[in-house]
């Protein structure tokens, strides 16, 4: 019942927002208006699809590769922290410094180093997703239930067994939760990287649409890149729920 009510509330909220959007676009209608209404947007996406499709594919590829690279690095470094706590602290601090650097500011440097090709985009997307995964996973790996660890210790389980059987499985839901934030971050990273220099991609489409004042293309590019971001989030949200149905309900074992 509560679920139904919240569903209705959400639908109403979205309905209201779309209506407001439509209203603003309607009031500002006319040639050269910077606003595009909901219906026009759908039509624009349809019309611009031949342009948008390859751009989407390029950005998605960069984001996916960057995400994969960032995740791999973060997972490996996190696993290292189980054994070497002090090294883990050092890595965490270094990652924080790296994360504090504005990506848009270091992107030009990367372009000079690696050129305006795939490597730059993948690197920036990787940097954008790396930190979120590292912090979440490494924290989860060292905050395993003390009693669960003692339970393994009592039966004389060696370090590797404890890690594989208890520590890592307990931390996996946190890892997947971090993916939900890291995947959209990789999309943003890839888009930002394209702004600095690229041959194709949604970032470059947005940029050129802005420069040529092509309002429908600009809106539809924004729409598609947002959709990509949202889908990447939703994918990991659903996957996490499917893989770890016990996660939210595991409080019962302590009740």
């Amino acid at each position: 019942m509560r679920r139904l009510t919240s569903g209705v509330a959400f639908a109403a909220l979205y309905g209201l927002l779309i209506f407001l959007w439509w209203l603003i676009a309607y009031l500002n209608r006319g040639a050269g208006s910077p606003f595009v209404g909901p219906v026009q947007l759908v039509r624009a996406v349809w019309d611009q699809w031949p342009v948008l499709q390859p751009s989407l594919a390029a950005t998605a590829e960069e984001a996916a590769l960057g995400f994969a690279a960032g995740v791999c690095l973060a997972v490996v470094l996190s696993l290292v922290t189980i054994r070497f706590r002090y090294l883990g602290t050092l890595i965490g601090r270094l990652a924080l410094v790296l994360y504090s650097l504005p990506l848009i500011a270091i992107a030009p440097l990367l372009v000079i180093w690696f050129g305006a090709g795939l490597v730059t985009k993948v690197t920036i997307a990787a940097l954008a997703s790396f930190f979120l995964v590292l912090v979440n996973f490494s924290t989860a790996l060292v905050s395993t239930d003390r009693q669960a660890l003692e339970m393994m210790e009592v039966i004389g389980a060696p370090f590797m067994t404890v890690s594989v059987r208890v520590r890592i499985p307990y931390a996996l839901p946190s890892l997947f939760a971090s993916f939900r934030a890291a995947a959209p971050a990789a999309v943003i990273g890839a888009t930002v990287a394209e702004w600095v220099g690229a041959n194709q991609g949604l970032g470059i489409t947005i940029l050129s649409a802005m420069q040529s004042y092509s309002i429908p293309l600009l809106w539809s590019s924004i729409f598609v890149v947002s959709l990509l971001s949202l889908v990447s989030y939703g994918f990991f949200a659903v996957l996490g729920r499917k893989l770890f149905p016990w996660h939210e309900s595991n409080a019962t074992s302590g009740a």
């Binding site: 239930d145 009693q147 669960a148 003692e150 339970m151 210790e153 009592v154 039966i155 004389g156 059987r165 208890v166 499985p169 016990w246 996660h247 309900s249 595991n250 074992s253 302590g254």
Partner: peptide, 17 residues
């Protein structure tokens, strides 16, 4: 302990979910 002489029951059941 290494010879597994102990059984230990904790405050929580600590079953792996």
């Amino acid at each position: 302990r290494q010879k597994r002489k102990f059984g230990f029951v904790f405050q929580d059941a600590v079953l792996l979910p």
